[in-house]
Write a protein that binds this DNA or RNA. Structure first.
Lengths: 166, 166
DNA sequence: TGAGAGAGTTGACTTAGTCAACACAGGAGG
DNA sequence: CCTCCTGTGTTGACTAAGTCAACTCTCTCA
């Protein structure tokens, strides 16, 4: 148990630096990590209400409102009331926004692929397994096609429960 | 390769939320996550120069100077010039500071143990293995008693290279 | 129909973080 | 002994990030 706590904490420290480095990569571009993440979530869920983005990203209402306004001003998104309900105006990407989102997506892939590219295929497999397993163990709400199944003594194996993306 | 990239990115997203949640736990206390981390690094390295804390934590000089001044004002640390060199005044904890550091450390342990405690011992072992392996694979500079050794086809095993903390 | 809930907006504010100019001590070379 | 250079820390001035509460609007439902 103590060991587990230490391992988690060592990892926390490492990963905080890791994320900081990722964020720094956005310096000089016209988005930062938070905005990229928001754009990403919009892209994968559009049309989507600001409120659900708030809960997904854990962002304050006021702050979200301003970010969304900024995105709108830059022409990345539009907001259209759903028929018959004017309380919320779900967000959708414009052509420009979609292009940008794809572009950022590409650049993120490239960045990650740099840190992963130096690993052998075998190591990459282990990395995927490790990260996915850790995530599922730590996040009780995770639900993305995998389950953990106890298969062998002393080991928990990772099993794709629907069609695998692994 | 694509799979690895996706897995890393999914993990990044998950972990960003995870860290955000950790940070929020400090609400209402008299420190935040950044300060706790700084205190932690001081505690494990004292006496330590501000400059090395800067590089360790990736924090700006000016900002570090202010944080340190704050710590000093709160009576958590003192700064004493090393004999014969007045360029830098290494930081050491006061009694109060040490007590606080230990207290925070305890609370962090408790928090982590909550998320880990619901796991079986087997799962905990897997978590430790997963996180440690992921960290070593992603961080080429990690050097904390483990090395990765390719042992079996399709798998990289984790080996303690000195006396194990595992 | 009117109370309430939920979505979003806005102003006022606090905290975090950045940047550049500066001061100051010590080391190295003339 | 001077002077230049380097590294360490400090400070002021700023920008960006994030928080909070008050308010508006629209719809729902008793």
């Amino acid at each position: 148990m103590e060991t587990a706590i230490d391992a988690v904490r060592a990892f926390n420290r490492f990963f905080t630096r890791h994320v900081g480095a990722m964020d720094a990569r956005f310096l000089g571009t016209d988005t930062n990590l938070a905005e990229a993440r928001l754009l990403f979530e919009i892209a994968r869920r559009e049309p989507v209400a600001a409120a659900s983005l708030q809960t997904i990203l854990g962002i304050d209402r006021g702050y979200m409102s301003r970010m969304v306004a900024r995105f709108e001003a830059r022409g990345w998104i539009v907001r259209k009331a759903a028929a018959r309900d004017d309380r919320s105006r779900p967000i959708t990407l414009t052509k420009t926004g979609r292009t940008l989102a794809e572009d950022i997506d590409q650049r993120q892939r490239a960045t990650v692929s740099q840190s992963v590219g130096s690993l052998s295929e075998m190591e990459q497999n282990d990395l995927v397994r490790s990260l996915t397993m850790a995530r599922l163990l730590l996040d009780p709400t995770a639900e993305d096609g995998f389950t953990l199944r106890t298969a062998r003594v002393g080991e928990v194996s990772l099993v794709a429960s629907r069609q695998s993306i692994l």
